[in-house]
């Protein structure tokens, strides 16, 4: 059984199947095992795809922006903000430089100072959001020096340190997701192998008869693989549907819990969902292939 040809052959009905595999109790449970494995694998893969996509967006978003902080002492001079903005807007790499309103600053400080709003008397630094021309780079240290000449104490944050930590976290999350998929795959292979061996033991007499009337090992393996494909497809679709409903529920009900401050809310793209549809099919194919190999290896030891 190789490639899609073998897979399609398994889907074609065989009249008067010699083995009665559906009656085995262990096989009935295999549906649920495959469903659980597919559920976990789908969530893990979606996590990996989302984090990967999000890390790229974070990287692009933050690398193309700067946050300038005008200290409270500098805001005393109403001219200093205009000077800083003029200097920034004159930079060839800068696409846009806008001061954040006091209301927006209050919004950003809300997690620490509450939502009641900022007291008029509370001094807060002036923040300037700078967007760079796509693909353009700017030397933050050099810019900082030039800005300090017009507004002493000014700081320029290109988010480099924070971004690196974020990307490291994203890579770690992706690795964990991949590890989960690998573990789930191995567990599924073990479950199908054990189930197939149980089936072989239960069908020993019928298999002996099939051999005596001239059945090749692949004929018998085909029977097991076809059954495993059906079971895998059923379990895979149930697990996949449950995972998709869980994801939808998470994004519908999760709401603001999925927001991360200035960062955009992570969301799996349509491509991720298309890729995920492969999961139940892969689960079914894995079940069929595992059953096939288990049977062939077992029968090879018999006369």
């Amino acid at each position: 059984m190789t490639g899609f040809g073998g897979l399609f052959a398994l889907l074609s009905p065989r009249t008067g199947s010699a083995l009665q595999l559906r009656r085995s109790e262990s096989r009935l449970r295999l549906d649920w095992i495959v469903a659980a494995m597919t559920f976990l694998a789908t969530l893990a893969l979606l996590g990996a795809l989302t984090v990967g996509k999000q890390a790229g967006q974070w990287r692009d978003g933050l690398r193309g922006s700067l946050t300038i902080e005008l200290p409270v002492t500098a805001t005393a001079d109403p001219q200093s903000l205009d000077k800083v903005l003029a200097l920034l807007r004159a930079e060839p790499a800068v696409a846009r430089a806008e001061p954040l309103s006091r209301a927006r600053v209050a919004e950003l400080l809300a997690p620490w100072l509450g939502t009641a709003g900022l007291s008029e008397t509370l001094p807060v630094p002036q923040l300037i959001d700078v967007a760079l021309i796509p693909g353009a780079r700017i030397d933050a240290a050099s810019l900082s020096q030039r800005l300090a000449a017009v507004a002493p104490g000014i700081t320029v944050d290109d988010h480099g340190r924070w971004l690196n930590e974020l990307l490291r976290l994203a890579t770690l999350a992706t690795l964990v997701a991949v590890a989960i998929v690998v573990i789930v795959t191995l567990a599924a292979v073990i479950a199908v192998t054990l189930s197939t061996r149980a089936g072989l033991a239960l069908q020993q007499q019928a298999i002996g008869l099939l051999h005596l009337i001239g059945a090749e090992d692949r004929y018998i393996a085909h029977e097991f693989a076809r059954d495993a494909l059906t079971v895998g497809l059923r379990g895979g679709l149930v697990g996949f549907a449950t995972a998709v409903l869980t994801i939808i529920g998470l994004f519908v009900l999760g709401g603001s819990a999925l927001e991360f401050g200035l960062l955009p809310r992570p969301a799996p793209g349509p491509l991720a969902f298309i890729l995920l549809t492969v999961v139940p099919l892969a689960a079914a194919a894995l079940c069929a292939l595992t059953a096939w190999v288990t049977v062939v290896l077992d029968l090879r030891q018999r006369i």
Binding site: T15, G16, A18, Q20, L210, L212, I213, G214
Partner: peptide, 25 residues
């Protein structure tokens, strides 16, 4: 081979039992 204990597959009809060697081939 005609076995003393017949070795017919219980879940198959007479037709399917007899057809088995042909289908296997």
């Amino acid at each position: 081979v005609v076995f003393q204990d017949f070795r017919l597959l219980a879940h198959l009809s007479a037709l399917d039992n007899v057809a088995l060697p042909l289908r296997v081939a």
